[in-house]
Design a protein around this nucleic acid. Sequence first.
DNA 1: CGGTCTATAATTTTT
DNA 2: TTATAGACCG
Length: 737
Amino acid sequence: MEVHKIPTKPRSQPSGKTNKKLDLSKLNPEQKNAVLHVDGPLLILAGAGSGKTNTMTHRIAYLLAEKQIPASRILGLSFTNKAANELKERVRSLTGTVLGPRATKGLIVSTFHSLCVKILREFAGRVGYTPQFSILDPHDQESIVKEILKLINIDAKKFDPTWVLFQIGQAKNKFLSGEEAGAFFDTLKGPKVAYDDYSIALQSVFPRYQERLKLLNAMDFDDLLFNAVTLLENHADVRESLSRRFQFILVDEYQDTNPSQFRLLQALTSTHHNICVVGDDDQSIYAWRGADPTHILNFDHYYPGTKKIILDQNYRSTETILSAANQVISKNSKRYPKSLWSERGAGSPIHTVAVEDDRAESQMVTEEILKRVQENQRPWKDFAILYRSNAQSRIFEEALRLHQIPYKLVGALSFLDRREVKDLLSYWKLVVNPKDDTALRRVINWPARGIGKSSIERIHQDAVLYQLSFYESMQSHAVQGDLNEKAKAGTKAFCELQERLSAQLFGIVRSEYEGRDGDFLIAVSEWAKRSLEAIGTKAALLSEDEDTAKAMKRFDNLEELANAIGMMDLAPASHEGSPQNGAMVLQEYLSQLVLDSKEDKKDEDNENQNALTLMTLHGAKGLEFPIVFLVGLEDGCLPHQRTIDEGTDLSEERRLFYVGITRARDELYLVRAKNRIRYGKAIPRNPCRFLEDIPQDLLLERDESSTPDFRSEEAQKKHEDEIQNFFAEIQKRLNKK
DNA sequence: CGGTCTATAATTTTT
DNA sequence: TTATAGACCG
């Protein structure tokens, strides 16, 4: 039963054409204040669904249109490519009607990471790199750490490489110096070993890892930030020129900034304080990877004279949903007190459903969705199923597939994780950066060319002995050396292939195309397609997969990867650091790919496709859906077990719940299972503790299970204790009288 | 050298 | 229960 009719038209689009004047009439007074504030620090506390993006885009448009700030003096920063693209697109459409299509030319709206790439490509030499540096993906990082662990005789079984990498990343995110990192490592307790060798292990791996990356001319994600900050802090000339260039800086999701990002911003604002940050402390959910919410809580401390604006009118959800959200979040202590309100009316109550186990959970959700689709004519894309951890998606996928409901799984193994994609990209990486041993070792024998383990080992040993890159060592082995005939021939063939590809690619020069950038890009794209042939990918794929159709499909994907080069956005030739030859284009393309792994080629038909969404609570931030199912609302799942075990602060888990609730526009389902099947056994579970904070009168509760609520021994004991205390108390009072 | 098999570990969240 | 990473054999 719907109390409220849902308007499905997009909200707050500027109506029709406006003549020469930016239309601010659709903004509420606070939003307008934020837009009109020009000079000096500005903090916008934007609650969920409060028109944050709209405010930011209007503010940029206002600077461009009314204040005549050149687009190239404005910098917008966000965390995801998706957010950056959306922001840019909306600024473009806003200013388009007023200033024409060229108004945003030179405007940079990007993620922190890609901004750092831009800066570092230009000044790589100042931090000991060449501009061709590669960007490693997590998989590459892991193989390097494994190598190092082996080298220093540490058992990778005891010291999980992923864990080691995570801690190294933490140290970089916090921008710790060598000694500070050491002290930080000392405080850690690892997962598998009781004694504290962890710090020693980390302290021996960390420097070696960094050294290795430098040798490979490669940076990992965290290095991009770390090195950019190092560059700016140590080189006043670079710092000042960039700070002067970016006269106005806007930062989205500011509550998620980590110390590296914070310092980057400080450097960029060293010559002015025109920084506008937008965020919501209640939606800070990345502290676990180094984000520090005190950046937003103490913003005016770092930037005195800050103007603070609170956007608390919500344009998204019903009042019922908002008051549940407000209640839940109000239990957190360290926050700017605020409470969202809306004019949308009460709407439907929140459904809370308890089911028997996770199988029943997926069934119930699926059936409910089918019902809603039939009864209310809802399209699939109105629905989202949100969960705490990725592992929970699987069972829903099965149920959805069974009922033939189209869904899109966000955060699934990305296109880039596919083996053949990584292989192809490794060839391309190697052409751009021949020092990239990691890439080389991936494809040295793919397609099979007779270079086996022992040959690789020999090449490797010579590389170490003569201080060569792996590729250089290969080159010398192709001519002489102690490889068997087959391996030698393979090595020779490989080197020749690389040389040829490289020569061809560097031969594609932009100046020959005289402004026809489209043709220039297509030439590079053609090269990429030819490289597929030269490598022999089609034959390789066909031979390793029985299923010819499947193999062809994989091959088509690779061709698509080559094609996409032709559709890149290319900086104008005059612009510094813009690609001048094929290799530079390819390099740019490769960095875009690694930094943008989420929305890749698979998303091509994404926008208008009608499918329900399956994703984690983290992934859902910034999105909204008419009907939301929050599933797995059990202790151990929503306050995640790891967080409970650490015994510390559960406020971030609570914020996660808050984020989930506030994704819903019209209806919200809170679903929990009484048992969860794990490794084939049913584990009984308690309801998520945050559920208690939602007032009963907002809820419509039902229990579809056949078993009574489970209480863990501990909970049972606590419950009994409470009853006993209660009676003891009464007894005491009676005795007193 | 490459494929198949078996043992073992595993379920936070990600640019 | 399932996925993956080494071991081992052809």
